[in-house]
Design a protein around this nucleic acid. Structure first.
Lengths: 342, 342
DNA sequence: AATAGTTTTGCAAATGTTTTCATTTTTGAC
DNA sequence: GTCAAAAATGAAAACATTTGCAAAACTATT
């Protein structure tokens, strides 16, 4: 405790302090069963005295795993990705790894650059969101044979293992639900679809389910709006200020649905009596929302945990990442959707 | 493109392929102005051909910065920390660093272990949330003279530089606002205070402001409840089912306030006509909430960005972290608070 | 007390870079 | 075409570890 030498505290200093060789110190960390209990004790004491902390960088250049996993998400300040990141991080930590996190703000070129950077840091594995990535990103991961998973979305013919839900199916479920309630005048409120395969698939699913019931989405009722409560609120107010308006609004995710409902409440309209509004995602908060939001559950926590498991599994076994997992979306009917009547 | 050798692609392979020495390759990366344009071209081409990616681990053991900053938060799936993490991460990336992220779930021993792990990874700096940390954690950071900042909370006598708001003041602001509206029967709804200095300070601030107006918080109206909409909703329903109930509820954060309001709505009570409800935080969504939530803004994005700036600044200048920043909380009066009348 | 076997330890090479210093090459002036 | 100065390159040491192999230190058996 006295002075513990600001100078250096490398394995050699420890070795000296414990009067053994560096090799023995190293072994005492990595293969404790190979060193005598007594020596180990001396070493531990020296470690404590010097405040020595192992240097993973130095280990890593011996081909030893870095113990880090790269996770790149579009953004974390959407509830949904926050939940995903949290569960992924929990699972990964549990298994002894640490995550290197970055966000690309829906810019796939940036995603490529970040991926590169993570490879420079010698992460042991990578996780990305969605299936749509630049050619370069895919190429890089393949060329470096980096164990990788795609989270969020599931598709049989994705270039990499994916763990996620079927967003098309999610769209289909909600579309069928709304059409099944007798609604024929349906608006949609989605985030920008370009470069966002999740949203695109959901939209396609909605449209198909609607078409199957003979319902067509009017072009001027198909809104694209930034991913925020405020934007959705504004969009919905524009919608209802027109002389005729739909009887239901299918939103691309719960955040937009919240915004839509707030917008209606503010204008004295009641959900679901005047309009049916639905979300997709079942974000934290949608259940407690008043009235409880009808939506499709995409189990973020489960996806994060399972994705983490898959990637770690591949890393420690040194085998290719196993086949992915389809985590089925589930229709959750609460209080914001009701049968159409006039 | 042909076969780019799965074998290895280290700097030596590149050197061979480009018919120069490894030193030149290294220089071409780190001090390009010292190598002839022509040679640089040859090297770049070899790099591309072999798919070479620099190994930061190998650089790091030369005392070169790792380019990573450790960020440990209690959890990221609370809106508020998500916002903070996002802005911190944005700023840090902007400046060329990458974050190593971990969550401790409000367990300070775990926080210590995670800090250690990050030091093993040779992060260049550390950021933690709040001022309350274990002795060991503080000791470790000091002993390794690791540049560190404490985010979220500001206090003059914290052991490390902090960038954050004054949570006591935040509590005071909202307490004074509610008392000023004439409320005398005030309930509080807070997350568990133990091991959470932010919540504790807010509570103290509320109590002081109330006391200053001669208002005392009844013990059976001071609720502690887990940090979730659902829990708050349940707590509030218990509160109003009693024969007498307060005229206002001061919540420790916006999430609890949302829950409280939902609980009241569900039971046919109106906010603010029947009860005044307030939050603290001004989370994303509180503005658009219907009715707009009266709260105290704690500018998470600003804290994250400024904290990142401080730490990076210290890292690149190799000086101690500069003095912290107090980012003042601000009362935001919206629609959930109203003058008491009976 | 000698031997064989086992356990524990140390030596030295290896890992992928960077950097200092020395050497070679180029440039420009005469 | 020579020479000095400047620019570009290379050789080797250094960084903090791990590990294969050999040496040393114990144990147990006779």
């Amino acid at each position: 405790m006295s002075d513990n030498m600001r100078k250096k505290a490398d394995i050699i200093a420890v070795a000296k302090a414990a009067r053994v060789s560096p090799s023995t110190v190293s072994r005492s960390f990595n293969h404790p069963e190979l060193v005598k209990a007594n020596t180990r004790k001396k070493i531990d004491s020296a470690v404590r005295r010097l405040g020595y902390i192992r240097n993973r960088a130095a280990q890593t250049i011996h081909g030893i795993r870095s113990g880090t996993i790269g996770l790149i998400v579009p953004t974390i300040d959407h509830t949904i990705f926050a939940e995903l990141v949290q569960s992924f991080s929990d699972a990964v930590e549990e298994l002894g790894f640490t995550i290197l996190l970055a966000t690309h703000g829906y810019n796939l070129d940036r995603e490529y650059a970040l991926t590169r950077k993570m490879l420079e840091h010698r992460v042991d594995g990578m996780a990305l969101i969605g299936i749509e990535h630049s050619e370069d990103t895919y190429g890089l991961l393949a060329q470096q044979s980096m164990p990788s998973v795609l989270l969020w979305n599931y598709s049989d013919d994705a270039p990499l293992t994916c763990v996620g839900s079927d967003n098309f199916e999610a769209g289909r479920l909600i579309g069928a639900h709304v059409a099944g309630l007798g609604h024929r005048d349906v608006a949609t409120l989605f985030p920008p679809l370009a470069g966002n395969d999740r949203a695109q698939l959901r939209f396609d699913g909605v449209r198909q389910a609607l078409n199957a019931e003979g319902v067509r989405i009017r072009e001027d009722w198909a809104f694209e709006t930034p991913y925020s409560v405020a934007a959705a609120k504004k969009a919905i107010e524009a919608l209802i200020s027109a002389q005729e308006h739909p009887t239901s609004v299918i939103c691309g995710n719960d955040v937009l649905a919240w915004g839509a409902i707030y917008g209606l409440m503010k204008n004295g309209l009641s959900v679901p009596d005047d309009l049916t509004v639905t979300g997709i995602g079942d974000f934290k908060g949608s259940k407690e929302f008043e009235p409880g939001l009808t939506t499709v559950r995409i189990p973020a926590r489960q996806i994060g945990a399972q994705g983490a498991k898959r990637i770690v599994e591949a890393i420690v076994s040194d085998m290719p990442v196993a086949a992915g997992d389809l985590i089925a979306p589930e229709l959750i009917v609460r209080a914001t959707s009701a049968r159409f009547r006039r």
